[in-house]
């Protein structure tokens, strides 16, 4: 069992007041997320990516099909807390997910809910705060911190529950570039430490650094592969009114003008290396 998450033909539908037919937010999606992998999911608003994420954390339950986290079916109520402890979740708005007016108390919230012993909680809280570089701020009130710092506290709150997988739903959407870098660095460090990462994002540069990119549109998976494979379909991605990373866009434009340049280039560094190699 090398899969962290298995999604079998998941359908999630909901009723909207102004429409007779139910809306299929997620429409027959099957996926397997490998243990220890770093997967980015991109798609425009309303493409179903957030709904998919909430199905993994059992915040939403499938209309049909099934979701398994570490082999636990999310529909199995007895396993609910195991599932949420295994697959932690970080949300978009840094303000609206912190519970306590003291940083360290907030980080303790998850382990407290799990019934962990007080001394063990203390240790986990300290460790988690160190790993997001926020130990110094442990006594502060969240509203005095920057967006990036708040988001790191939210991540620490999840780490303190000792999850094996973290699902991040657009964690950098409301941050400035500085905060975005801070948070992305932490996410990559956690990945290196063996945590499975599922990152939902609008920023193509962030997706380009994942092991695997999944593009969703209208509740379905349209593209799935390594960043190089997926971003090789620049034209298709643009047709979905999504962006591609800057380097990918450049390669696409140059190829259109007949310049022979490999489609597998996805980052500025790779582009520079290629040009240097070619011209020297």
């Amino acid at each position: 069992m090398n899969n962290m998450i298995r999604i079998d033909d998941l359908v999630f539908e909901y009723k909207r007041e102004d429409q007779l037919e139910p809306v299929h937010a997620v429409n027959h999606v099957s996926l397997e997320i490998e243990r220890g992998s770093f997967t980015a999911i991109i798609g425009k608003n309303g493409s179903g990516k957030s709904t998919l994420a909430k199905n993994i954390n059992a915040l939403l339950l499938p209309s049909s099909g099934a979701v398994y986290v570490k082999g636990f079916n999310t529909a199995d109520e007895d396993k609910l807390w195991d599932i949420r402890q295994t697959a932690g979740m970080v949300f978009q708005n840094p303000d609206n997910q912190l519970v306590s007016s003291i940083v360290e108390d907030d980080v303790a919230f998850g382990p407290e809910n799990l019934g962990v012993e007080p001394e063990e909680i203390r240790k986990r809280v300290d460790d988690s705060l160190y790993s997001v570089n926020m130990y110094e701020e442990r006594k502060k009130a969240p509203h005095l911190l920057s967006g990036g710092q708040k988001q790191r506290i939210a991540i620490a709150g999840v780490i303190a529950m000792h999850p094996e997988c973290i699902i991040l739903d657009e964690p950098t959407a409301m941050l400035d570039p500085h905060g975005r870098n801070e948070v992305m660095e932490i996410i990559h460090t956690l990945h290196r430490e063996g945590i499975t990462i599922l990152l939902i994002t609008h920023f193509m540069e962030e997706a380009a650094k994942a092991d695997r990119v999944i593009i969703m549109d209208e509740g379905k998976v349209v593209l799935d592969g390594t960043p190089a494979e997926v971003f090789g379909h620049a034209e298709e991605i643009k047709a979905l009114s999504l962006d591609v990373p800057f380097a990918v866009d450049l390669v696409y434009r140059l190829r259109k003008r007949g310049v022979k340049i490999p489609e597998s280039i996805i980052s500025t560094e790779e582009m520079v290396d290629y040009i240097v190699c070619k011209l020297k």
């Binding site: 909430k54 954390n57 915040l59 807390w81 949420r84 402890q85 932690g88 979740m89 949300f91 708005n93 609206n96 997910q97 519970v99 360290e104 108390d105 303790a108 919230f109 998850g110 382990p111 407290e112 809910n113 799990l114 019934g115 962990v116 012993e117 007080p118 909680i121 203390r122 809280v125 939210a154 709150g157 999840v158 529950m161």
Partner: peptide, 20 residues
Amino acid sequence: DLAMAMEARCYRGGSHRTRM
């Protein structure tokens, strides 16, 4: 948002809770 975040962090009322 907060209710969702609390649920995701395994909040289920006071019964199983310990305190740091």
